[in-house]
């Protein structure tokens, strides 16, 4: 069972062509070269793969924040309790 961060990293590598070596929980989407259109694409792919919708991502969000949102949406828990 992969963690929310691992699920997110897999989507970034396999679907959006990112280099896994560039990814880290503290990196922002802007730092890894994703713009707002890419984030919209990421949200749709994540919804397709996990069945949950992650909203409110910005280019300045970190990957850890996005993973927390993914986890929170999946579990229905508060984002703050994830990761």
């Amino acid at each position: 069972m992969s963690t929310p961060y691992e699920k997110l990293a897999d989507i970034l590598v396999e679907e959006l062509g990112q280099d896994r070596d560039d990814l880290s929980p503290s990196a922002t989407f802007s730092e890894i070269g994703l713009d707002s259109l890419s984030l919209a694409e990421l949200s749709v792919i994540a919804m397709d793969k996990t069945g949950v919708e992650i909203e409110d991502l910005t280019p300045e969000s970190t990957l850890a924040e996005a993973a927390a949102l993914l986890d929170a949406a999946a579990s229905g828990a508060d984002a703050g309790s994830a990761i």
Binding site: E15, L16, G17, Q18, D19, G33, S38, E41
Partner: peptide, 12 residues
């Protein structure tokens, strides 16, 4: 395309 153009560019 991923090898020729880079995977990030090719994917979009």
């Amino acid at each position: 395309p991923g090898k020729l153009l880079g995977r990030a560019l090719a994917s979009r």
